[in-house]
Design a protein around this nucleic acid. Structure first.
Lengths: 338, 338
DNA sequence: CTGTTAGCGCGTTCAT
DNA sequence: ATGAACGCGCTAACAG
C-alpha cells in the first residue's frame, strides 16, 4: 500500500510523459465523466496513472471545467441529531451521484446563515441545500434572483424548490393517534412559528382535534424553539397545577422537545405512557431506546435527501414543493388515558 | 442587499479595469494575508472591488498559492452527538484562524476511513484532523509517511500528534466518585478495545478500584461498541439476575451507553440514582436534561479542537500527545448505595 | 482517436 | 509602489 499522497504529487504531465502520449490524450483517458474510452492507449494511460499514484488536482480541474461536483449544505446545527442525520443522508445521496457534500452551520441566525452561504458559494459549490429556511426567508429569495441552483429540505419558504415531509399530515397523525386512544385533553408543543415545520405540524394537530370535535384552549398550544430545554420548561408549565387541570396527552413537534417533556413529567411525578401520553416527531434512533420508548412520527430522510439533490442537479419547473408521507411509530409512551 | 452571487461573476480583471490599475496591483491590494497595503491606490481598488461585489475565485487562488486554507475533518459519524460537537468546535476554531473545515464520515470502518481521507486529500486540504483513529491505525501511519499535516482528536494511535481528554483520569474520576459514595459492587462498560478511549477509561476505572481495594471480576468489565443499543443490551445483561448479585453502580464510558443502561434499568424495575448509580462520559448537553440527570465526565472540547488545529497548522515536535483534564459533573443519577 | 494551442483566474517573479 | 509576463494543472477547441 503506497502512501495516500506522494511527497511530490504526480501531475497529469508526468502521466503523459510516462505513457508517451500528449497531455490531452492523458486528460481524456482519465476523464471519468461519460463513458471511458476503450482504446488501448487509454487503457495504458490509466494503468500508468494507477502505478504512479496519480490523483487529479481538483482545483485545476474545477477551474477549467467551471464546475466542482460539490454541493453545499446549510444546517442550523449538527449537534441536533435530526440535522446530523439529514446531512448524512444528503452526503450519501450526493456521493452516489459522484458529488461531494460540504456542510456549514448557521445556528438559526439569519446573519450567520447568509455568511455561511457565502462561504460555501465562495468555494464555487454547484448548488446549495438549505435545511435552515424560515418563512419569508431572504436567502432563498436571493438565491433565486442570482440563479443559484438550490433546494430546501425539511423546511420550506413556500417558494423555492423544496423537499420535505408532509408536516401537516404528520401533525395530524400524531394527534389523531392520541384521540384514537381516547384522550380529550391534549396539549401541543410546536416549533418556532418562523419555521414551516412548526406551523404545519400545528395545523395538522388542529385538524385532528377539530375532526374529533375537541376544543383545545390557546394556552394548550405552545410554540417554542426546538431543543430539550424548551421541552423541559414548556412541559413543566403545562404539567404544573397552575392551570387547574393538566392535559393527559402531549404532542411535541420534535423528539428533543418530547425528551424535555419526559424530564418535566418525571419532576411532577407523572409516568409517561400511564399518567401522561406523549408523541414526538422525527423518530431519531434514540427515541426507540429511551427508558420509555417514544411514540414518534418518522419522516423519510433518505427520500427527502435524494429528491433535494435532484432538484439541485436537474432544476425542473420552479416552485416545486415535494412532500413525503410520514409514518406514525407507536411505542410505549402513548397509551389510553387513565 | 445585492444578490450573493452576481449572474456574471466579477473577476479580478474586472476590478483592475474598473480601478484603472493592472491585474497585479489589484491582486496585491486585495491580498488579505499579511498587512493590507495602505496606499491610496490600494484603498481605491478595495472600494471598487466592494462595489462590484468582487469575490476571489478560490480555485484559481488555491491553484496558484498551493494552499487552500481548508482543513479536512474525519469523524466516524455525525449522528453521534459527541462527534457533532467536536466538529462544531473544530469548525469554530478553524474559522477564527481564517480556515474552513470540511467533514467526511467513515462509520468506524477502516476502508471507508481511508476512502474518506482520500476524498478530502483530493480536495487539497492543508491538513487533516481525525477523530476516527484506532490503536495501531494504518491511516495516521501513512499520513506520517506522506508528510501530510494532521492531528488526531479524542482518540490517539499513540504516535501521531494528538489532542484529547485524559481518559485515564476521566475513568478514574468516574469510578472514584462511585467509590466515594460507598459503592463496592461496581461494573464498568467501556468502549471498543480498538479505541484509546475504551482502553484508557477502563484503565482509569481499574486504578480507582484498586486504590479502594475493591476486586471486580472480569464479567463486570465489559467492552462494547459506543451506542445506545450496546448500552441497553449490556445493561440488561449486567442487571439481570443471571449472575446472582447485581452491581449497585455502573460506569458507562460514554453518555450513549449510559442512556442505554437507563432503559435496561427501567426494564428491570430499577430506579437510577436509588437502586442503581450511573456515571456516563462526555457530558453531552442532553445528559443534564434526562428524566434522571446523568452524572458525567466533561471533556474540554473547545481546548481539544484549538490545540488540534495548532498541531496541524504549526507542526512542532512530532509525537506530541496533549491530554486535557476532564471534570466530573455530579448529578442525580449517582447516589449512595441502598 | 490524437496532438497542438489557448486559457480558466489568480499570484508571483522580474523589471521598471 | 507598479505593470508585464509567466505559469499553477488541467480541459476544451481546433485541426489533422
Amino acid at each position: 500500500m503506497e502512501p495516500v499522497i506522494p511527497n511530490a504529487p504526480v501531475t497529469l504531465k508526468d502521466v503523459a510523459v510516462a505513457s508517451g502520449v500528449s497531455l490531452s490524450t492523458a486528460s481524456r483517458a482519465l476523464d471519468d465523466r461519460g463513458k471511458p474510452s476503450q482504446s488501448a492507449t487509454a487503457d495504458r494511460v490509466r494503468k500508468v496513472a494507477e502505478e504512479l499514484g496519480y490523483r487529479r488536482n481538483a482545483f485545476a480541474s474545477n477551474l477549467r471545467r467551471g464546475q466542482t461536483r460539490t454541493l453545499g449544505v446549510l444546517v442550523p446545527r449538527l449537534s441536533d441529531t435530526v440535522m446530523a442525520l439529514m446531512f448524512e443522508e444528503i452526503e450519501r445521496a450526493a456521493s452516489s451521484r459522484g458529488y461531494f457534500a460540504m456542510v456549514a452551520t448557521s445556528g438559526d441566525d439569519p446573519n450567520d446563515e447568509r455568511k455561511a452561504a457565502e462561504t460555501l458559494l465562495d468555494r464555487s459549490v454547484d448548488g446549495l441545500i438549505l435545511a435552515t429556511s424560515r418563512i419569508e426567508d431572504e436567502l432563498p429569495k436571493y438565491l433565486r434572483e442570482s440563479s443559484v441552483a438550490h433546494a430546501l429540505v425539511l423546511r420550506t419558504d413556500g417558494t423555492s424548490p423544496s423537499s420535505l415531509g408532509d408536516d401537516e399530515v404528520g401533525g395530524y397523525l400524531a394527534v389523531r393517534h392520541l384521540v384514537d386512544l381516547g384522550h380529550t385533553d391534549i396539549a401541543v408543543i410546536t416549533g418556532p412559528s418562523f419555521t414551516s415545520t412548526g406551523i404545519a405540524r400545528l395545523a395538522g394537530a388542529k385538524r385532528a382535534l377539530a375532526e374529533a370535535g375537541l376544543h383545545v384552549p390557546k394556552r394548550r398550544m405552545i410554540s417554542v424553539g426546538y431543543g430539550i430545554q424548551s421541552g423541559f420548561s414548556t412541559g413543566r408549565e403545562l404539567l404544573s397545577e397552575k392551570h387547574g387541570s393538566k392535559p393527559t396527552a402531549i404532542f411535541a413537534a420534535n423528539d428533543n422537545l418530547a425528551m424535555g417533556v419526559m424530564a418535566a413529567a418525571k419532576e411532577q411525578g407523572l409516568i409517561i405512557g400511564e399518567n401522561l401520553s406523549l408523541v414526538g416527531y422525527n423518530d431519531i434512533p434514540q427515541s426507540a431506546l429511551l427508558p420509555t420508548p417514544l411514540t414518534s412520527v418518522r419522516i423519510p430522510l433518505e427520500q427527502i435527501a435524494s429528491r433535494a439533490i435532484d432538484f439541485v442537479l436537474a432544476p425542473t419547473s420552479e416552485h416545486e414543493i415535494r412532500k413525503f408521507m410520514p409514518t406514525l411509530i407507536p411505542r410505549e409512551s402513548s397509551g389510553k388515558p387513565q
